[in-house]
Design a protein around this nucleic acid. Structure first.
Lengths: 118, 118
DNA sequence: GCTTGACCTGGAGCGCACTCCAGGTTGAAG
DNA sequence: CTTCAACCTGGAGTGCGCTCCAGGTCAAGC
């Protein structure tokens, strides 16, 4: 329980091994454990961070902003408000994005239907 | 009517001047008219292409695929079926994307709500 | 006629988010 | 004990979609 090899972490998070290494290199992930031989060991906690990153990436948050969030989290509990605000602003952008996507999807469907009448 | 300067085409389509030039350079736009002095003149027809490109880009279609579509359209009426199929496949990808976005948006909202209880 | 801002070209540069590579190490299975 | 797939590092390379630049041209308003 709660000790995953890199390949397992990759499989579970949907990020590639290279991406996991990259995320650690840029400081998005930090404090990833190592075996005596130097291999990474991911905990359940690490995986739940990855789940969050997956969510934020899928909704279009830039990596720089995820770094900011992770940094705030490392600073401690007193940044909770700022972290929430950051997510809130992001959620609003996502809503706009969803509306745009829906509008353009409707256009697309209309365009496709147009081909039926030719 | 139906003769627009580049800046006007940019304003109406939401693409930058550079992007319009780029689209012409790679062959996505073709047959854009010119004044005697060499300046581009966009027709209503060009603008409706731009509206389509806006739709496809906003829904995440890669430029290479838009080029393919434009090429088919240039080949004539007999490619209508293939064009429709291309849009149809894209629409299906967009649907998946919308579902993913919705799912992750829900996660995000849950995460935000979690902060309220701390 | 002159100014000035919009426009032209070809080509270089950029930002993002990975992705790949070379060359070496580790550790579980047989 | 050997093997070999999975892992390590630092750094270079990639793909996409623009975006910017230099150096020049065009045309409407004063």
């Amino acid at each position: 329980m709660s000790g995953y090899a890199p390949s397992e972490a990759a499989r579970r998070s949907g990020f590639s091994l290279d991406t996991l290494r990259y995320y650690e290199k840029i400081g998005l992930l930090s404090g990833i454990g190592r075996t005596s031989g130097g291999r990474r060991v991911f905990t359940d906690d690490d995986l739940s961070w990855l789940t969050l990153f997956r969510c934020l990436r899928d909704t279009g948050m830039p990596i720089a902003e995820m770094c900011r969030y992770a940094e705030l989290a490392r600073e401690g509990e007193h940044t909770a408000g700022e972290r929430q605000a950051l997510l809130q602003r992001h959620a609003e952008r996502v809503e706009e994005q969803m509306h745009l996507l829906q509008r353009q999807y409707d256009h697309l469907r209309e365009k496709i239907r147009y081909y039926d009448g030719t």
